[in-house]
Design a protein around this nucleic acid. Structure first.
Lengths: 151, 151
DNA sequence: TATTGTTATACTCTATAACTATA
DNA sequence: TATAGTTATAGAGTATAACAATA
């Protein structure tokens, strides 16, 4: 056996949980990015559309907090979606805006949602239903350890 | 119940596998970054030290391929470690270098390894042994879907 | 005094194209 | 012709500090 053309490296790292977690995340996000690029959206933009659609009237600070994105970094993100006429802003407060999806935004949200669901299904197909639920639960448990310093 | 000071957003996204995977990865890498900063290393640097230590004489291109990092991006990374006298380079080829750990590099590798092991244990403590193995296996299965375009 | 949205800025990570020298 | 290392560069993502207007 061992028809390796070059002596394969001793891989003393890919048995580590943190490493495989990082690699798995990269693979899944990369595939989602490719899939969403077909409708001109990045994963974070699709996520924002979905959240605004489910929370009409919310503010961009609320979205920021939920996604763990700093307020300052949300500014160009939201401006881009408003610029593309996918999200509309109406003042509520004098200092904050109520967000909502435009008709085009709702259509893009639906398209993004369909792509994301198909994407999830493609990865879930690797596992049994019980395995998927165990995986989701374990990842959620880890994610909830987030100190969420958030500024 | 519900002592929410502001109407909590409908979170229609954190049940998605890709999203929790990305968040869990961020939490774990963030914690590892904090832990490794105490010895002046970033996670990727610690990983390189471990791999070079386990593969004395390997080249930086081999490390790049194993980690899925582009050759061009490995250059400043390796230069930094050589600059810190943690890794030594000897020409083997006229165009490539054999990498090895300096004594200081081996000491740093040992320190990094101890930190990384303690870090893994802290997260593994959240689960049973069977859960951990299932999680590791599932993540490895996803990570191996990597198209590994690699340039 | 705290919060919202904002600007400016910087650092990391990643990606591509192109070059050189060697194999 | 393919590979190793390199340079330059550009795009994301994320971090902080500071400001004006408002609550």
């Amino acid at each position: 056996m061992e028809a390796a053309s070059e002596p394969t490296l001793q891989d003393s790292i890919s048995d580590r949980l943190g490493y495989v977690l990082r690699r798995a995340s990269g693979v899944m996000m990369g595939a989602l990015g490719v899939a969403l690029a077909e409708i001109g959206l990045r994963p974070v933009e699709a996520t924002i559309l979905i959240l605004v659609g489910a929370n009409t009237g919310c503010t961009q600070s609320e979205i920021s907090r939920l996604l763990g994105i700093k307020r300052a970094n949300m500014v160009p993100l939201m401006a881009g979606l408003v610029n593309k006429r996918l999200i509309e802003r109406y003042p509520v407060d004098g200092r904050s805006f109520a967000l909502s999806l435009s008709p085009e935004g709702a259509a893009q949200r639906d398209a993004a949602d369909a792509i994301m669901l198909a994407h999830e299904r493609r990865f879930e197909a690797l596992f049994s239903g019980a395995e998927i639920e165990a995986l989701r639960a374990a990842l959620t448990r880890i994610a909830q350890l987030d100190p969420t310093a958030q500024e």
